[in-house]
Structures are given as C-alpha cells and as structure tokens.
C-alpha cells in the first residue's frame, strides 16, 4: 500500500478518508484534522491557557503533544485515582511523559483528598465508573478555575463522541442533546471545555501516538468489565465498516442541524439555576453539589462501619 501524498510505503490505511499515508504524511494529516477542528468550531483562542486532562492513555497524551506542537500554552493535569498498581503505573507514565517533553504537570491525589476510588467503591453502592467520572470532572473543573486556566481539554475522540451522542439520542435526552459537542463555553463558574480530538477516530489517535513514540499506558482499569468492544461502539464499528465515513457525517450533521434545534427547545424550557454549592462553592443546580453529597454518604457509611467494629 502506498502513501496518497508521496507514494512511499504506507504505514496506515484510513477507509473513511479513502487514503493511506506514510509516517510523515499521516502526521501532517492528523495535525491538520486537529488544527482545522479547533478553528472551524472555535475551540481555542491563541492566548488560551489550556489545562489538559491526562489519564496516561493514547488519546490524552497524544492530545497534549499535538496542542503543544500547535503552539498552545498547555499544562497537564493528572488525577491519581489511588487504584493500587494501576494508578501508580498510569501516574508514572504521565509524569515521565511530561518530564521528557518539558510540559508542566499538576497532579491531584484522591488519596490526599480523602476520596480514593477503592474507598468510594466500598462505601457507595452505585456503579463505580459513573462515580469516578463525577470526581474526575469535579477536580478537572476545580483546578481549571482555581489556577487561572481558561480552557479544559480532554482526549475524547470521534468514537467516544459518537457513542455518547448515540446513547443520548436513544433516550432523546433533550438536555444533553442541546449542548453535546466539541466545545462547551465557560459559564456559571465552569471553565470552557474542549475536545480537540473530535474529528479523529480511536484508530487514528492510536496511530498518531504510536508514530510520535509516545509511551502510553494501554491497560484497562481493573474496575472496568474488560470487554474491549462495548455496546454502542460495536454497533458503530459495524456501521462504519459497511459505509466508511458514517461516523463523521452523523456527528457533523448533529452539530450543524440537530443540536441547534435541541438548544432552542432547551432555552424555552430551562427551569433550573446554577449557584455555588452551599458547602464547597462549586457550581451546582442542586444546592449542595453531588460531590459534597457523596462525601457525606461516605462519611456516614464509614462511621457506621466504625460503630459496628466497636460493638
């Protein structure tokens, strides 16, 4: 197989773009996708101070590298979840990566915050992945705002966005369908959120990080089910195989024609207000934010356990 641009030996074929590329031209293709996506959907300004959420996986590390290469002012943020060996490994991958590239890095340790994920899992009887996501988003927002960052970037790629959009569509979730997208403007005390990888697939993102010699962490979380193809992603994989380019078209069509319709509806019907949490000051529509409520539940569960132990 030959590179579409220079006819040298190709290292990757992309059916959705009807193209194959050598290492050099894959890199230019990928960087162009990121730069054009940022520009066309107004994700970032040149002077934005961007906090990049780094898990240690291919998407987040590749994103940090791509944004730095494009000249953005980036700082990494890693949340150490405290999940034993898995978190130690992920953190060291992130720390080594930032050190070798000279990128500034901020680490939040959930252990030090009193909420390591294994402790939450023990005391809160709800699906741990959802709760873990809540805590990560909380600290992303908190650090972004408190430390003067103007944007928070995450490594969600086209496949992630499609899976989420599809789930929101199956439920016709008006609230989520009114604002899902690659950019969520700063409002109500939340920093602007951007997903600069929204135009590239998981496969393209993996190739990019591999070719850039980024030593990413590719082991799944010990608390996840371990299935590599999950529900909606599997459906979309098959759809894309039958008709390459469907994912991109579905997402683009949603941003151009679907979302504005839901946003208009939502504006008419919105019946809640965002105010600072009465306990921690974090923006919430619920009086006391969900993080403070979860912390309280944990505290109660731990006190009950201690009381039982004392009997």
């Amino acid at each position: 197989m030959k590179c579409k641009v220079c006819k040298a030996k190709a290292v990757a074929a992309l059916p959705s773009h009807n193209a194959a590329f050598c290492k050099e031209h894959f890199n230019s293709f990928f960087m162009k996708q990121i730069a054009q996506g940022i520009k066309r959907r107004n994700l970032l300004e040149r002077d934005d101070k961007v906090l990049v959420a780094l898990s240690g996986g291919k998407d987040s590390l590749g994103l940090m590298y791509a944004l730095a290469e494009l000249g953005y002012n980036v700082t990494g943020l890693h949340i150490d979840l405290g999940i034993f060996e898995s978190s130690i490994k992920a953190r060291s991958v992130v720390e080594d990566f930032c050190k070798s590239k000279g990128y500034p890095l901020r680490v939040v340790e959930l252990e030090k915050e009193g909420v390591p994920i294994p402790l939450i899992k023990k005391h809160i009887r709800r699906p741990i992945c959802a709760i873990c996501g809540k805590f990560k988003r909380h600290y992303f927002n908190k650090v972004a705002i408190e430390e003067g960052n103007t944007a928070l970037a995450t490594g969600h790629n086209l496949d992630d966005e499609i899976a989420r959009l599809f789930a929101n569509t199956l439920r016709w979730d008006q609230g989520y369908l009114s604002d899902q997208g690659p950019v969520l403007p700063a409002e109500n005390g939340f920093a602007k959120k951007v997903k600069p990888l929204f135009r590239v697939t998981e496969y393209e993102s993996a190739i990019f990080s591999f070719l850039a010699d980024i030593p990413y962490h590719h082991l799944p979380c010990p608390y996840s089910s371990g299935a590599s193809f999950t529900g909606h992603k599997m459906l979309w994989r098959d759809m894309e195989l039958r008709s390459p380019g469907t994912k991109r078209a579905f997402y683009k069509g949603f941003l151009d024609r679907g979302r504005p319709a839901f946003a208009a509806l939502e504006k008419e019907e919105k019946d809640y207000e965002i105010n600072p949490c009465t306990e921690c000051g974090y923006p919430t529509s619920a009086g006391v934010c969900s993080i403070c409520r979860l912390k309280r539940q944990m505290q109660e569960s731990m006190e009950q356990e201690a009381a039982k132990g004392a009997e």
Binding site: D59, A163, E202, Y203, S228, F229, R237
Partner: peptide, 8 residues
C-alpha cells in the same frame, strides 16, 4: 496486535 478500542 494492539487493540485500540478503549473501554467505556
């Protein structure tokens, strides 16, 4: 063979 589809 390094599978690329992440969990979630």
């Amino acid at each position: 063979i390094r599978k690329v589809v992440s969990v979630g």
